[in-house]
């Protein structure tokens, strides 16, 4: 299958390892992967801040960058959710609405894509390691991604211990985390307490935004959990984990 990788601006800038893992995994799963060099950001910050004009301009750029591929695959539930919303961003009258609908229909969150389109089994890197999975909100509730990342982790040999609050928002919320830092951090604390209660050393998830926020809070609290994007666990990743407890 010919797919395109939408890297997402956070992965691109903050955690290239996740981009590299995404590319390697898609190739291993048998895909021909295009990584459009012109891509920047899906426009979600503008869309969620109420700036329709900017969101539309970037939506058109996404349409341009990701034309003619069978699937667009994204290592982030949040950005994949945004691509699914492109028709709404353009609005019902827009001449390129049809294109946006077609793109939205062939956009996938990467763990969902690897499991449900490729039936992929990653290399067995996880033997003897226990971890817990944080469901990021957009992946879970906009896209219904729940079992796919867990399936991949289990196929790779990891042992999952679920936290009670796996589905509760961690408080990142894009610009929310800097507009309402006190509330944002209180939400992180609740999530982290739930993660610590499992007794595992590592938290993983499918969205870098959540993980950076949680890792930053965990470090400030001088507590020991480590954090990795789920893809980092499916290929050998030399970069240290996020949070004070690395590697």
């Amino acid at each position: 299958m010919r797919v395109a990788l939408l890297v997402s601006c956070l992965v691109d800038g903050l955690r290239p390892s996740v981009g590299a893992a995404a590319l390697a995994l898609l190739r291993e799963a048998g895909c021909t992967v295009r990584v459009p060099r012109q891509q920047t950001c899906c426009g979600q910050p503008a869309w969620n801040s109420g700036d329709r004009a900017t969101a539309q301009a970037l939506a058109l750029k996404v349409l341009q960058d990701f034309a003619d591929v069978e699937a667009v695959v994204v290592p982030s539930g949040s950005c994949a959710g945004m691509v699914r919303q492109l028709p709404e961003v353009l609005g019902p009258e827009h001449p390129r609405l049809g294109e946006a609908e077609a793109l939205a229909a062939r956009c996938f969150e990467i763990t969902d894509f690897l499991v449900n389109q490729c039936d992929f089994t990653p290399a067995p890197l996880g033997a003897g390691q226990t971890l817990t999975y944080h469901d990021s909100c957009a992946g879970l509730r906009e896209l219904g991604v729940k079992s796919a990342p867990r399936t991949l982790l289990e196929r790779a040999g990891y042992t999952l211990t679920e936290m009670t609050q796996a589905e509760t928002c961690c408080g990142f919320g894009g610009t929310f985390c800097v507009k309402y830092p006190a509330v944002s951090v209180a939400m992180a604390d609740e999530k982290l307490a739930s993660a610590r209660a499992t007794g595992v050393p590592l938290v993983t998830g499918g969205d870098l935004g959540c993980l950076i926020h949680l890792a930053g809070r965990e470090e400030r609290a001088e507590a020991g959990l480590s954090f990795r994007h789920v893809l980092e666990l499916l290929v050998p990743t030399p970069a240290p984990a996020l949070g004070a407890g690395h590697p």
Binding site: V7, G13, L14, G19, R37, H213, R217, G243
Partner: peptide, 17 residues
């Protein structure tokens, strides 16, 4: 607004693209 109560995990360095 970020760092008043959180550390900011540093980027790995350099962008993926």
């Amino acid at each position: 607004a970020w760092t008043e109560s959180r550390n900011f995990p540093a980027p790995e360095g350099g962008s993926f693209l």
